[in-house]
Amino acid sequence: MNLGIAIADFTQPGGPTGIARHVGRLARTAEEYGFTRIAVMDHLFQIGIVGASEQEMLEAYTTLGYLAASTESAELLALVTSVGYREPGLLAKMITTLDVLSEGRAALGIGVGAGFNIAEARGLGLPFPPVSERFERLEETLRICLQMWSDDEKPFDGRYYRLERTLNSPRTVRQPRPPILIGGSGERKTLRLVAEYADACNLFHGPDLQHKLDVLRRHCDHVGRDYDEIEKTVLLPLDPGARGENIRALLAELRRLGHIGIDHVIGPIRGADQHASLRLLGDRLVPEALHI
Rank of each mutant, 00 (worst) to 15 (best):
L90E: 12
Y66A: 15
R165W: 06
A114W: 11
A52Q: 14
E136M: 06
L191K: 04
L191P: 07
Q147A: 07
T166H: 06
R177A: 09
L79S: 14
T190A: 05
E72A: 14
F156L: 03
L257K: 04
F45D: 13
A198W: 06
H43Y: 07
L280I: 13
N246S: 06
Y61N: 06
P155M: 13
L124M: 15
N2M: 04
G186M: 08
P176C: 03
L77Y: 15
D226A: 14
V23L: 00
L290M: 09
P130H: 02
D228Q: 15
L79I: 08
P240L: 05
R279M: 04
S132D: 15
I38W: 04
H22R: 13
Y197F: 15
T81M: 11
Q55A: 12
R256H: 11
A92H: 06
E54A: 14
R218M: 06
A69F: 02
I110P: 07
S277P: 08
A52S: 13
R279F: 00
G48V: 03
Y227K: 03
S169V: 14
E164I: 04
G113P: 05
L285V: 14
P88H: 11
K212M: 04
G113E: 07
E164S: 13
I47V: 14
E133A: 09
G125N: 08
R37P: 00
G113R: 05
Y33C: 01
I49G: 01
D221T: 10
R284Q: 13
R255Q: 15
V112S: 14
G206T: 07
G123C: 07
V265G: 10
V234K: 01
L181C: 10
G14L: 06
T96S: 14
P268R: 10
R105H: 12
T172R: 01
H222F: 01
L281I: 08
R165F: 08
L193K: 06
G89H: 02
D42P: 01
F128H: 12
E56R: 13
L213I: 05
T172Q: 07
V215S: 03
P129S: 09
F135S: 01
G51E: 10
D273H: 09
L216H: 09
R137A: 01
M94F: 03
R243N: 11
G84Q: 10
Q55S: 15
V265I: 09
R28I: 00
C220G: 01
I180S: 09
R159F: 00
T233L: 00
I49L: 13
R255S: 13
G282C: 04
Y61A: 03
Y85V: 00
L126G: 02
L209T: 08
G183E: 05
I38G: 10
E133P: 03
T96H: 01
S169Q: 12
L76W: 12
S132G: 12
G18C: 06
G184L: 03
E75Y: 12
E54M: 09
T166P: 02
A119R: 14
D199P: 04
H222C: 01
A276P: 00
G24T: 08
L44H: 13
L213D: 06
E245T: 02
P176S: 07
E288I: 05
A74K: 03
V80Q: 00
A107G: 11
V215P: 04
G125I: 09
I262N: 02
S73H: 13
L191Y: 02
L64S: 09
I262D: 10
A52W: 10
L238S: 10
F135W: 03
D239G: 10
R248M: 01
